[in-house]
Amino acid sequence: MNAMIGRKIGMTQVFGESNVMVPVTVLEVGPCVVTQIKTKDKDGYSAVQLGFGSKKPGKVNKPTAGHLAKSKAQPVQVMQEFRVDDAAGYRLGQVITADIFAAGDKIKIAGTTKGKGTAGVMKRHKFHGGPASHGQTDRNRHAGAVGSGSSPGRVYPGTKMAGHMGDVKFSVRNLKVVKVDQSKNIILVKGAVPGAPDGIVSIHKI
């Protein structure tokens, strides 16, 4: 397996190589349980579906409970599918732990970024805003012009404007694993990871 589901715990610092301070994100990774195996014959592609976290049994709806019963897994908080080259080596109910990662591994982490609500163009698109002086009024955080004149006579689709920001799926590539604590299911990753603490992230080896 080269990917897992985890939960962001928070950030701190550790002293790394040659005692340099390294900013790290603490992630609770797994244990993940294999809840479904997709094969080329049956589904057209090979993949493994993993489940992570826990849920009260009463909070699981019947279709999900039936799906989980096939792998005899406890109720899980999230399930996510990961493509694999060959699904033959996996079996239902198999538990995947953080030991698939090792210190020094390069990884990609995907998660949902913090929602910022409706945001202006300066925050959302890093616009510079308007001039502060030379007779300008009420333009400090405005975008400026959004289009030309009568030709084309319209604003192009996709023009950067104010609107909803954040709460979208986002990946960070080339993060480095600093430490793996398999007994606690915890890994430390150098740098920041999308989302708030308690956010669900997927961790992929690259």
Partner: peptide, 8 residues
């Protein structure tokens, strides 16, 4: 979460 970070 805080206990985990404290222990690290």
């Amino acid at each position: 979460k805080q206990a985990v970070i404290k222990s690290i």
